[in-house]
Write a protein that binds this DNA or RNA. Structure first.
Length: 418
DNA sequence: TCTGGGGTCCTAGGACCC
DNA sequence: TCTGGGGTCCTAGGACCC
């Protein structure tokens, strides 16, 4: 069996942990730049605020309904996630942390356990230790565990937040209940195509013939079908080392100017380099992309990306920025208003396994320099020391409703009046 | 006026090689 | 008039996830 444990309305719940006065009130959390809604409390969902809603379109509703709005506070959510995952990892030796708010447990050899009771224990422990409510679903495969979790979340009164899909009768009943567009792995495009073919439920999907699925949804669709039929196909992913690291941002205004775009891209390259050094890796390739505002049909559109191989593995901000600018020059076209850009590094090798190369101009002194730079920025604050090609004044994200970093910054720890 | 960021995997088509 | 087969690498894009 597998379990899927999922934090309810995770970001909204994190905000609530330190603000119990917000219980029962509608809360939304916004993306970077306070752009769109990325998390909602149940009360906010009941007001009809959809996931991904642009904040400016819903401002009026927020005001009228007294919706509490928060800017995304990722240091807080990341820290709370670590706490939740640490607790859940005690419930099975085989764990896959699937996302910031979800994890799979593999429960082979748990046949003697009353899983529903086991789930209730997890739930209670996480709630008591962190203040975060979770839902738990048990089933024979991962795709079905996702479904079981959905049932637990949808019917909290009947399930107490824990559902065990123990028999094939329960499985078929659940598959018939689940709408095709809500199946894990079926996105908007496939849902449309399937609906047009009369496939309305997950059960209908499991009745399709393999050839059609292979042709229209490739191998991914076939795997999903098997998993939904109860045949173990998707297994726990190994504790995955990342294959890519990205820093990408939308700009609040269009950028026309090459120099301005270069400043931004340089900052993103430096940020990727810092992330690389943090996980003690070097990269051997680098991609960058730039694109115009796709929401503006009246403006000329252009989007392009490029990937380049580096002559040696590196995590030096100086080297990575240098190549990012080389790449940018190759895809930049003047005459467009750019809205977004990003740097992605990949093809990693461990820092200590760096290949020494005779014929490249890798500077061996960079690693000491980067070390010093990281230390200064750690001590005196982010971006205290930076490359001259980066922005003169760091461009600030819009974060008008940011909550304190309750658990990751000593200055933000809550005070309790006695 | 304002519309996120960070990931994964898969496939198609062109260039190029032998 | 008729014009191969098999492979790799790269770019771009599609589709999905949270």
């Amino acid at each position: 069996m597998y379990a899927l444990i999922d934090c309810n309305n995770f970001y909204a719940s994190c905000e609530r942990v330190f603000r119990p006065d917000l219980n029962g009130r509608p809360i939304v959390v916004l993306s970077n730049n306070d752009g769109c809604v990325i998390a909602r409390s149940n009360e906010a969902k009941d007001l009809g605020i959809p996931m991904g809603a642009p904040a400016f379109e819903y401002q009026e509703l927020f005001d009228k309904q007294n919706v509490l709005v928060f800017s995304a506070n990722f240091p807080l959510y990341g820290d709370m996630s670590n706490r939740v995952m640490a607790i859940l990892s005690e419930y099975s030796p085989e764990v896959e942390i699937y996302s910031i708010d979800e994890c799979f447990l593999k429960l082979d050899g748990f046949g003697m356990f009353d899983l529903w009771e086991y789930g209730l224990q997890m739930r209670a422990k996480v709630l008591k230790s962190t203040g975060i409510p979770v839902s738990v679903g048990f089933a024979p495969t991962k795709a079905l565990a996702k479904l079981a979790n959905r049932i637990a979340k949808k019917f909290p009164d009947r399930t107490k937040g824990v559902y065990n899909m123990a028999t094939s009768e329960l499985r078929d009943k659940a598959l018939k209940w689940l709408k095709i567009e809500d199946v894990w792995g079926i996105g908007r495009r496939h849902a449309l195509r399937l609906n047009a073919r009369g496939v309305k439920s997950a059960f209908d999907f499991t009745q399709l013939n393999d050839e059609w699925i292979k042709k229209n949804m490739a191998i991914v669709g076939l795997r999903l079908k098997r998993d939904l039929c109860g045949i173990r196909t998707l297994d726990l992913e190994e504790t995955k080392s990342k294959k890519n690291i990205a820093t990408t941002r939308s700009f609040s205004n269009n950028i026309v100017d090459f120099e301005q775009l270069r400043e931004r891209v340089s900052s993103y390259a430096v940020s990727c380099s810092e992330k690389l050094r943090k996980q003690k890796s070097c990269c051997k390739e680098l991609s960058i992309f730039i694109l115009t505002n796709r929401h503006r049909a009246d403006q000329a559109q252009y989007s392009r990306s490029i990937r380049i191989k580096l002559p040696f593995a590196t995590n030096s901000s100086i080297e990575i920025t240098k190549y990012a600018i080389v790449a940018l020059k190759r895809i930049f076209r003047s005459g467009y208003g750019y809205k977004k850009a990003g740097v992605i590094v990949g093809d990693f090798v461990p820092e200590e396994a760096e290949q020494l190369s005779l014929f490249t101009d890798k500077n061996p002194r960079h690693s000491a320099l980067m070390h010093a730079l990281d230390n200064m920025n750690k001590k005196y604050g982010k971006n205290t020391v930076r490359l001259s090609v980066q922005e003169k004044r760091m461009w600030k994200m819009r974060q008008e409703k940011l909550s304190p970093h309750y658990t990751t910054d000593l200055n933000d720890i809550i005070t309790i009046r006695v």
